[in-house]
Design a protein around this nucleic acid. Structure first.
Length: 1132
RNA sequence: GCAGGAGUAGCGAAGUGGUCAAACGCGCGGGACUCAAGAUCCCGUCCUUUAGUAGGUUCAGAGGUUCGAAUCCUCUCUCCUGCACCA
């Protein structure tokens, strides 16, 4: 191989490019003949390991695009930055014993150096890094805007906890029950207060706008699936007779504080008007309700209140309601007296406070045991405009007790007659009566009449309140058993459950439906309760079979012939008919199928031939038909329907000599037990409704609407759309991320940091021990409340790094702006991104979050006139470059290919060329040391040609091919068919190397430059091209010069050359010597056959004659064989 | 199970109604150059047959549409990728 100092050439041009600043995007909108073009690659996490060839491949793809568009005359923005926050950096830094900041900055410096060495044409003036306070300041700023708009909120959540990461993982970071980074670490479930962003608010738009995107179908499908929209019906199932379990209700009022004058107002019936209302409502329902008047409310004494309170009987079916001070009183009383009750409801309760007076009343102990004394549940109410002290109290109780926590919106205040709008409080009444019905989401309301059980998720928050007396033990055992199952095995479990002892009421039939707890019901989807229709759902069937639950078919599968199970008929009689006999049983019964049009004939046959004491049933177009032949010969016939059901059941039993059951069985259910009818009755296909009261006969698809409407009209259900998409949990309990800029104040609650105080900087020196280092940094945690100025604590959670990457593409536009995250005018000009490039691993997370963020920013008014809905118009997913052994490049496999090593040996350009030659860039590919040699050969040929370049007038054929190549090469590049583009370029070189115009070779170099920029620059300067080839104008093709006919003729000449070679070979293979070749062509084709060129190509002396040439040498008369386009050939 | 994609020479990979099966690269075989090796250049590379021809097989498998199918339709198989007890 020729020796060329590739690294030297590469460095030389990289320096020149940088010095001239040729890759900087222009700020003026007038620049760029064709307007702007924003090419972006997903910004990388800067690993301390640096870049390998796989990165070179990834970034070359975008670089080629950027270089092409730039030369085409677009004002190109092609920036690069670093996703520098996050776990890997933190962990790596800890392992290296370094501070993450220094560690990360070093890694970035190395990345930048390596990226420049690959020849990537980034505009480095616009770079950013997410750990830069100037960047994450705006994360915090946006977070606060989200918070103010109610798009950021806190809630307690079951979270996936990885003990090794010591942080919460998103669901998608859990891979088969293990941490995505630690394949050996089980993920635990923990309950923590977490910050969420309301991505669900945008679910519909995120789904709908997928259609607008020019993205790979695969990614779009993944997003659709992730959002997971399903349309269905929410059905209300009332809980059967639960309120009768209440022995009595006691409501304890509050205290007006120290204002003695208000004391007289502070009675249950006036001040808290709803107390009177509740009493009245319960009275209507014949439930005893006591609302004791406590002594000296303005100066409550615990012992006095206790005495008054204990006048009322309390047992384990009592419901206690306490409001304000009354709530705190109840907690203390329960805690001290250890009395078991049914339910505890705290309405804006009091508790938190330092004053001796409060301590005296509420006690100075926190009565944690209360939780265990309440059989069903504890409910805590507060509201957005409640007194801060009470909000905090409510939250503190919630923290300890869990249970149900409801924060009403504005308009409830402290739930006093002044603040509560109206005198009624229906939410409380419903809660006391527990008459909130169970909401069940289903996509198959057409099967509603087939519901034979309900299943509640084992992790449903209100599960215990559904459990009937005496069933708690079994349910708790079940839950305990579930808890002991490893997270990873959870999804492999068999469907299991236990009966709760309670029943729901079927909304349309009023039937009692048993309620079960099941391990297979997902708590977070729908309402966490499903209706079990075993006849038409495989999973439900499995469950029903296991626990012996009723299977009730309600959809008869569409079928074209009648099914009949025949007893009491002779074989010979049956033979006469042309029934399809499916099976003869050992007992001499027959399973047959009969076409519907022969049914009348068939009925006649049964009436005549069936023996007395038998019956026959068969399916019809409308359901099932029964013919009974009593022992006295009397024949009775009927269709199966609700009215005939019991009679048929009775006959069926007596004919079988059984005793009829007290409660008749559903005949469809017993038909379904017959293997033969099973396929018609037990299935998930379409058909028409049976066994469904007024809806019988409807096609099940129509029935969906009809039944939903019926429910709606009775207020027992409604249409509902459910999404699988959940709100985005952004809290991370780690150091290396953007601190969430919130402050916890005892008196003001949770308040955002003032915008002028941003950024809330990460402390530089922290201790790594266990857990979150921020929590142990005093100087970080301790702060002042921006509201009242008193001591307060900072949030110690940091943000998910996907928050950083959700808007970085906007910051590039205005990376140095200190006053704003970005200028909206710049957004108007540059957005949306014309071409986004990245790996498919971000198909759902990053790409959904970024889309969500864009939509939110649009709605918050951060964009100018140009209301961007979607950030990434086009998306390209590159494949992954694997090592030569087909495995992922990894230090541990020792198969990493480093760009700097390759550059020394082959040059970066050969590597770039090779990488895009192997295959279409969206496919996975393998590195190959042999393969790159092929690319190097090509480059060396081009160098050689350029070094000896002498202009030569080119032929029309060459011109035609050049123009064709320009056309096809350009569109191939635009469509990412780089591998095909390379082939076309190679073919063009084969054409040009015969000698060509300077301009043609320039065009060639321009085309080459996007893939092999360094060598193209070098040769460009060698042939004295103007300026940088990287900025040269992209060649235009001239349609007129593409001459199909000429190229076709050339094809024929090539064919002739092939033929001649073939003949030579055959002749020589036979041991004959060859000397010269004679070619005879038609006179009009003579000009295309040049004997010199042909001699070179064939490697033998060639003589060309026109067939009309009388002086030609033609000893064998071959010239006669010449046809148009096919010259005669003679070898001597 | 659901969704998306793929299956073409030894390998990677083009071709997506006829002109045309296999461009291009790697590998392999042969030749030139060389004392030799490497590099480089040239030729060949589905089978049979042949003075450039002719014929045949073949595009995961099986059917179908069509005058004509690797290409369109149906079914089946295999592989990849993602999701998955989502009601």
């Amino acid at each position: 191989m020729k020796i060329i100092d590739f690294p030297a050439i590469e460095k030389k041009w990289q320096r020149k490019w940088e010095k001239a600043g040729i890759f900087k995007a222009k700020e003026s909108r007038k620049v760029g003949v064709k307007g702007k073009y924003y090419v972006l690659e997903m910004y990388p996490y800067p690993s301390a390991l640096g870049l390998h060839m796989g990165h070179a491949f990834n970034y070359s793809i975008g670089d080629i695009q950027a270089r092409l568009r730039r030369m085409q005359g677009f004002n190109v923005l092609y920036p690069m930055g670093f996703d520098s926050f996050g776990l890997p950096a933190e962990n790596a830094a800890i392992n290296a014993g370094a501070q993450p900041k220094k560690f990360t900055d070093d890694a970035i410096a190395n990345y930048v150096k390596q990226m420049k060495e690959i020849g990537l044409s980034y505009d480095w003036s616009k770079t950013l890094k997410s750990h830069d306070p100037e960047y994450y300041k705006w994360n915090q700023y946006f977070f606060i805007q989200f918070f103010k708009k109610g798009l950021a909120y806190r809630k307690k959540a079951s979270v996936n906890w990885c003990e090794k990461c010591r942080t919460v993982l998103a669901n998608e970071q859990v891979v088969q029950g293990k941490c995505w980074r630690h394949e050996d670490t089980e993920v635990e479930i923990r309950q923590l207060e977490q910050w969420f962003l309301k991505t669900t608010e945008y679910a519909e738009e995120l789904l709908k706008d997928i259609e607008k995107l020019d993205w790979p179908e695969r990614i779009k499908a993944m997003q659709r699936n992730w959002i997971g929209k399903s349309e269905g019906t929410e059905v209300d199932f009332d809980i059967d007779e639960r309120d009768k379990n209440i022995s009595n209700v006691v409501v304890v009022h509050g205290s007006p504080g120290l204002d003695k004058t208000k004391d007289k107002d502070y009675t249950p019936d006036s001040k808290k008007a709803w107390i009177g209302w509740i009493k009245k409502e319960l009275g209507k329902r014949e439930i005893r309700c006591d609302c004791p008047q406590m002594p000296t409310p303005w100066k409550p004494e615990y012992s006095e209140w206790k005495r008054e309170f204990e006048k009322i009987p309390i047992d384990e079916n009592s419901v206690l309601v306490g409001t304000s001070a009354g709530g705190g009183f109840l907690v203390r009383w329960l805690g001290e007296e250890k009395v078991k009750i049914k339910k505890l409801i705290l309405v804006s309760p009091g508790k938190v406070g330092n004053s001796d007076r409060l301590k005296e009343f509420y006690g100075d102990v926190f009565y944690k045991n209360v939780k265990d004394l309440v059989r069903e549940k504890i409910v805590i109410y507060t509201s957005e405009d409640d007194i801060d002290y009470h909000i905090n109290s409510a939250e503190e109780y919630n923290k300890e007790f869990g249970g149900k926590f409801v924060k009403f919106g504005k308009g409830y205040g402290h739930f006093t007659s002044k603040t509560l709008v109206g005198n009624d409080f229906p939410e409380l009444l419903d809660e006391i009566l527990n008459s909130e019905s169970l909401k069940v989401f289903t996509t198959r309301p057409d099967t509603l009449f087939g519901v034979t059980f309900l299943v509640v998720s084992a992790s449903h928050p209100e599960l215990m309140s559904l459990v009937a007396n005496g069933h708690e033990g079994r349910v708790k055992d079940f839950l305990r058993k579930l808890k002991s199952v490893k997270q990873e095995d959870l999804d492999k479990l068999d469907k299991e459950g236990v009966f709760t002892g309670s029943y729901a009421e079927h909304p349309l039939t009023g039937e009692k439906i048993p309620i079960w707890v099941g391990n297979f019901v997902v708590a977070g989807y729908g309402s966490g309760i499903v209706m079990g229709v075993p006849a038409h759902d495989e999973r439900d069937f499995e469950f029903a079979k296991k626990y012996g639950l009723d299977v009730r078919p309600v959809v008869l599968k569409s079928h074209n012939e009648s099914y009949s199970y025949i007893m009491g008929v002779n074989w010979r009689d049956i033979e006469k008919f042309d029934f399809k006999i499916i099976e003869k049983t050992k007992n001499g019964f027959f399973k047959v199928k009969i076409s519907f049009d022969k049914l009348e004939e068939y009925k006649e046959f049964i009436r005549k031939n069936m023996k007395e004491g038998f019956w026959n049933e068969f399916s019809t177009k409308d359901g099932f038909y029964f013919i009974f032949k009593h022992k006295d010969g009397r024949i009775e016939e009927m269709e199966l329907n609700k009215k005939t059901n019991d009679l048929i059941d009775k006959y069926g039993a007596t004919f079988n000599d059984e005793k009829p059951k007290k409660t008749p069985e559903n005949v469809y259910s017993w038909l379904a037990k017959n293997d033969f009818y099973k396929e018609l009755l037990i299935h998930s296909d379409s058909g028409f409704l049976i066994n469904s009261e007024g809806f019988d006969g409807l096609q099940n698809r129509e029935a969906i609407n009809h039944i939903t409407k019926a429910l709606e009209s009775k207020n027992l259900g409604k249409k509902k759309i459910e999404y699988k998409l959940r709100d985005w949990l952004i809290s991370r309990q780690r150091y290396w991320g953007t601190p969430i800029p919130m402050i916890y104040c005892d008196s003001c609650g949770i308040v955002p940091e003032l915008e002028r105080n941003l950024p809330v900087k990460l402390p530089e020196k922290v201790k790594y021990g266990k857990g979150n280092p921020l929590a142990s940094s005093k100087s970080f945690v301790e702060t002042k409340c921006p509201g009242c100025g008193r001591k307060a604590k900072r949030e110690t959670d940091t943000m998910d790094t996907f928050f950083d990457s959700s808007w970085y593409y906007l910051r590039y536009l205005d990376a140095k702006n200190k006053k704003k995250p970005f200028d909206s005018k710049k957004v108007d000009y540059w957005m949306p991104i014309n071409q986004y490039i990245g790996g498919a691993e971000h198909a759902v997370l990053h790409l959904i979050y970024a889309r969500f963020f864009t939509k939110v920013l649009r709605d918050l008014g951060y964009f100018g006139k140009n209301k961007i809905d979607e950030p990434f118009s086009r998306l390209f997913n590159q494949g992954t470059l694997h090592a030569e052994d087909g495995r992922r490049m990894s230090k541990s496999y020792g198969n990493v290919v480093l760009p700097e090593v390759i550059s020394k040996k082959y040059g970066m350009d050969a590597a770039r060329l090779f990488l895009v030659s192997i295959a279409s860039p969206d496919k996975n590919l393998n590195w190959s040391d042999k393969g790159i040699e092929g690319s190097l050969r090509f480059i060396l040929q081009v160098v050689d040609f350029a070094n000896n370049f002498k202009e030569k007038k080119e032929t029309k054929l060459q011109e035609s091919k050049l123009n064709r190549t320009i056309r096809d090469y350009t569109s191939d590049l635009e469509e990412f068919r780089y591998n095909l583009a390379v082939i076309k370029l190679r073919n063009l070189f084969d054409v040009l190397k015969e000698g060509c115009d300077k301009k043609s070779f320039e065009s060639f170099l321009k085309m080459l430059s996007v893939i092999c920029p360094h060598i193209a620059e070098e040769l460009w300067s060698k042939i004295k091209g103007k300026g940088f080839v990287s900025l040269a104008e992209w060649p235009e093709f001239d349609k007129e010069k593409i001459d199909d006919e000429l190229e076709e003729i050339e094809g024929r000449v090539e064919k002739t050359i092939d033929d001649a070679k073939n003949i030579l070979k055959i002749v020589e293979d036979r041991g004959n010597k060859t000397n010269k070749i004679y070619i005879y062509v038609l006179p009009n084709e003579l000009e295309f056959y040049d004997s010199k060129k042909l001699s070179v190509r064939i490697g033998k002396e060639v003589a060309v004659y026109s067939v009309s040439d009388k002086s030609k040498y033609d000893p064998s008369g071959i010239a006669k064989k010449t046809k148009p386009g096919r010259p005669g050939i003679y070898v001597e």
